[in-house]
């Protein structure tokens, strides 16, 4: 059984302009010790998807569907029960490490509080444990530095502290939402290396959320590519990078500026902008930006499924895939 099994997840936001269809029917699972990357542009719904699972949607948001964590449905839990799971069994790391840390408290205070509250450790034990975690994320002189305030840390070190706090309770699932997007490439490389080490040395499951496919090439087992609140393609990391099926995935791969190839050509961009989630077109939401769009794309695209959880949602046939369903989202669906 997978550690997390999500099915039929939908997220809606009530706004003065109308209902924003942020997530439109997501099904996926994360196995024990598995690292899943969820990739998509801003507005793809990737963050709202996990916020819904964690019960952290904004007030005007509502979610439906099932999210079984270790067999229990997170969507049905009371806020109090969810609080017991968040932080202890599922930890979350957000994009901006500065706003996630309390600037008025030392790192020591913030870490010890978590360890004492969630694990019921005594102060001394909690402190020793916190120092050990800082060492694990390679903060130099953790004994000394734990006494400092967040502003005395660099951006990269703050994000490593956030990861250390996330790891304090040895969660079964770590969710990292764009953990290195606001950081320098050099620091991104350090965070990637850290995630890679966690993945190898622990049994923890990890969900990585990012807009940059390149950033997760090294450290994911499986990838879900999202567009307009839907999965458009999923497969193993090798499937996605070496055998991409969906034109959107291919576009994302082509738009990455890369140093491992000699090329001075223009970068391949995906033209246009993500769709307005207030008025999703019927049919394929990517069709206006797709170089391979045809008349058929005005209809909801079929869902192709292959072996090992491989899937693609497009009129183009998927290698070794079978059509399982044509689903409608947008005007006439959902």
């Amino acid at each position: 059984m997978a550690l997390l099994e999500v099915s039929g997840l939908e997220v809606r936001f009530d706004t003065p302009e109308g209902v924003v269809k942020a997530v439109n029917g997501m099904d996926f699972e994360v196995g024990e010790g598995e690292t899943l990357a969820i990739v998509g542009e801003s507005g793809a719904g990737k963050s709202q998807l996990v916020m819904a699972i964690m019960g952290l949607l904004a007030e005007n948001g509502s979610a439906s569907g099932v999210a079984l964590f270790d067999g229990e449905d997170l969507m049905q839990m009371k806020p109090r029960e969810l609080r017991g799971i968040r932080g202890r069994r599922i930890a979350m790391i957000f994009q901006d490490p500065m706003t996630s840390l309390n600037p008025y408290l030392t790192i020591e205070k913030q870490m010890i509080e978590v360890a004492m509250h969630h694990q019921g450790l005594a102060r001394d034990e909690a402190r020793a444990h916190a120092v050990e975690m800082l060492r694990a994320v390679r903060i130099p002189d953790p004994e000394e530095r734990i006494r400092q305030y967040p502003h005395e840390y660099s951006g990269g070190m703050r994000q490593r502290v956030m990861i250390a706090i996330g790891l304090l309770c040895e969660p079964e699932l770590l969710i990292a939402d764009e953990p290195s997007t606001a950081l320098d490439v050099t620091v991104q490389a350090q965070i990637t290396e850290l995630v890679g080490r966690l993945r190898e040395q622990t049994r923890m499951s990890i969900i990585l959320i990012t807009h940059d496919l390149a950033a997760v090439a090294e450290v994911s087992d499986r990838i879900i590519v999202m567009y307009a609140g839907q999965m458009v393609e999923t497969g193993t990391v090798d499937d996605i990078f070496y055998r991409p099926q969906h034109p959107y995935t291919r576009g994302l791969l082509a738009s990455v500026p890369r140093l491992d190839r000699v090329s001075d050509d223009e970068l391949q961009a995906i033209p246009g902008n993500p769709p307005n989630l207030l008025e999703l077109p019927s049919g394929c939401p990517f069709r206006d930006r797709c170089s391979e769009a045809t008349e058929g794309c005005r209809q909801p695209p079929p869902l192709w499924q292959g072996e090992g959880g491989r899937a693609s949602r497009c009129v183009l046939p998927m290698d070794g895939g079978q059509i399982v369903a044509a689903e409608a989202v947008g005007e006439d669906g959902a």
Binding site: D184, V185, T186, Q188, A189, Q190, T192, E193, D212, L213, A214, A215, A217, E218, V237, D238, F241, L253, V256, R258, L259, D260
Partner: peptide, 18 residues
């Protein structure tokens, strides 16, 4: 060397450690 490479095999090989 810090720039992520959108190629899983190459990425693992080139950047065994940053």
């Amino acid at each position: 060397k810090s720039v992520p490479i959108p190629d899983p095999e190459l990425a693992r090989r080139v950047r065994a450690e940053s």
